[in-house]
Amino acid sequence: MVKLRINNKFYELDLKGNETLLEILRDHLGFTGTKTACDDAECGACSVLIDGVQMLSCLILACDMEGKEITTIEGLSEGEKLHPIQEAFLEKGAVQCGFCIPGMVLSSKSLLNKNPNPSRQEIKEALDGNICRCAGYQKIFEAVELAVEKIKKNKK
């Protein structure tokens, strides 16, 4: 039995050992907010946070995650209250089809965890692993910048 902590809840799972975290999240536990859009770790859609740091869940074995704190998009908002990054993505119109958005939001969160005041170039570099095919990224950059402001304001 492997005990995984996902979005502050514990899940006891009987694993074979070769399951990726992506498979466990989507197929076994129903966290379908975690997407996938490629077969070879190129798209970033399956991004999750492991102890606050963005990682690709398609590259991680679920059984290795015991003792870690896993955050998926479902765990970012507090009840009905959206996280400031989510609010910013909505307000800036950064969302089109939305398929890349969970990964984008979590990669943004990972960036802001270690760098609360990133430059535009730092935002671009942090999101380079997440493909968006619809929106052309501009509004996503603006959304991350707005999120920075929102988080600062919330802290005051």
Binding site: T32, T72, E74, G93, V95, G98, I101
Partner: peptide, 21 residues
């Protein structure tokens, strides 16, 4: 007006269910 997407909350929270899901 640049009103937010009518389906936006589902998209930013991962709750929208695509056929894929």
């Amino acid at each position: 007006k640049s009103v937010p997407r009518i389906d936006g909350v589902g998209l930013v929270t991962g709750q929208s269910k695509y056929a894929f899901d």
